[in-house]
């Protein structure tokens, strides 16, 4: 079930998403970004899955823009690892013809250590 902008409030937590970063997925990612890679998962591949997992819970109208993105990487993730992504709304703003959401993402490995954190700013049409 997805939620739309009106149903979201600051502090809203999306369902926890767990996903495996297997060799096939990493291989597709490396082909897409024209990179060689090594024995660990590129941090932006981890981030891309985390963002997509969160976006899967959001019902966003056409014209929605991913305006900005921040990341901080803490730990390498080995190919084949399973990670867990937690996401929540940290800011919600409606002003004039603009609606904005700021979403915080935190990704953890199987030992519950934080792998990376990120902040996505999304602008929705009014």
């Amino acid at each position: 079930m997805s939620v739309d902008y009106d149903e979201l409030s600051v502090g809203y937590e999306f369902p926890v998403a767990s996903y495996e970063l297997d060799a096939a997925l990493v291989s597709r990612y490396l082909k897409a970004v024209d990179s060689r890679g090594d024995d660990h998962v590129p941090p932006l591949a981890v981030a891309a899955r985390a963002l997509a997992a969160m976006a899967g819970w959001l019902s966003l109208p056409g014209g929605t823009i991913h305006a900005s993105q921040e990341f901080e990487f803490f730990k390498l993730v080995s190919v084949g690892s399973t990670v867990e992504c937690r996401a929540r709304v940290t800011r919600k703003l409606a002003r004039g013809g603009m609606r904005m959401l700021i979403l915080q993402l935190d990704v953890f490995d199987q030992t519950k250590e934080r792998v990376q954190s990120g902040k996505a700013t999304i602008i929705l049409p009014a």
Partner: peptide, 11 residues
């Protein structure tokens, strides 16, 4: 970079 970098970007 991969285990300590910080990134901030505008599209």
């Amino acid at each position: 970079w991969d285990s300590g970098g910080k990134l901030s970007a505008r599209f």
